[in-house]
Design a protein around this nucleic acid. Sequence first.
DNA 1: ATAATTTTGCGATTCATTATCATAATCGAT
DNA 2: ATCGATTATGATAATGAATCGCAAAATTAT
Lengths: 147, 147
Amino acid sequence: MKKEEALLKDHISKHNLKVTKERSAILRAFLDSERHITAEELYRNMREDGSSIGLATIYRTLNLFCESGLAEQRQFGDGQARYELTYNVKHHDHLICEECHRIIEFENQEIEALQEKVAQKNGFKIFSHKLELYGICASCSAKKTAS
Amino acid sequence: MKKEEALLKDHISKHNLKVTKERSAILRAFLDSERHITAEELYRNMREDGSSIGLATIYRTLNLFCESGLAEQRQFGDGQARYELTYNVKHHDHLICEECHRIIEFENQEIEALQEKVAQKNGFKIFSHKLELYGICASCSAKKTAS
DNA sequence: ATAATTTTGCGATTCATTATCATAATCGAT
DNA sequence: ATCGATTATGATAATGAATCGCAAAATTAT
Ligand SMILES: [Mn+2]
Ligand SMILES: [Mn+2]
Ligand SMILES: [Zn+2]
Ligand SMILES: [Zn+2]
């Protein structure tokens, strides 16, 4: 049993929830899908593979993943929530290409430290943060100058 | 005439738009209201002052403010867009208290520089960015430890 | 003032997400 | 394995923020 499956089952048993084939299937599909996936995208992916799980259940289950600490929800400003596995994944922030919608992950310990410094200076205790850099990626830049 | 009014009128005339009493009233109310206001909040504020301007017009006009470079839209994760005057206002980022919803503004040139460095390292050109620190503010912290 | 153009308020519409509810599945105790 | 209590599911309706369509009203250049 994968560690992600174990984590989810642990959360399920701790909260008097139930292991269902739907939840297991969604977890498998989620782990197989690309990072930063949309509920709708995951739904379509699974439908194409013959699943008949409803969209509401996809939403419910992605929320469950977030509550269990398996995943986190992101809002990249396109109006749809995106979900990514964060269990056993190092914290990172995002570069978002507004041209091709590619998402590049990065980590920068200096920035993280400075954020803490800013918080401290303001008597603020940080629980979470969001750092997103919007712009144009290298390959889209190249395409643009070529044309 | 205030500089904000001048900027808006300039944008209006450059785009064959029209100066209306609604737009002027919304601008006045917007400049008078607290920063990071919601369309709905601005609508209610104006209604309480006897305005009969419709909500759709508030939305349309706030978008106009953004297009004219007067304001910017923010998304602080509570599902409603917030607008703030940014014309002649120095760039800054935000600390958001999840307890009392207070918003503290800060600027940190070191972080800005590091963001550019990260972008460069990834061949990325930044157009805009979003840095939000979510947590609990000093006064809410104090209240919590007191109880 | 006229006429062309833009704007407005209202209500309808959209879209992502959540709620409702009847039916089905799970699971611990027997 | 069966039962019974509880939770989960799919289909559909509902929600809420934001936008759209349209007829009537307002603005602006002539
Ligand atoms: Mn990521
Ligand atoms: Mn601000
Ligand atoms: Zn790109
Ligand atoms: Zn607070």
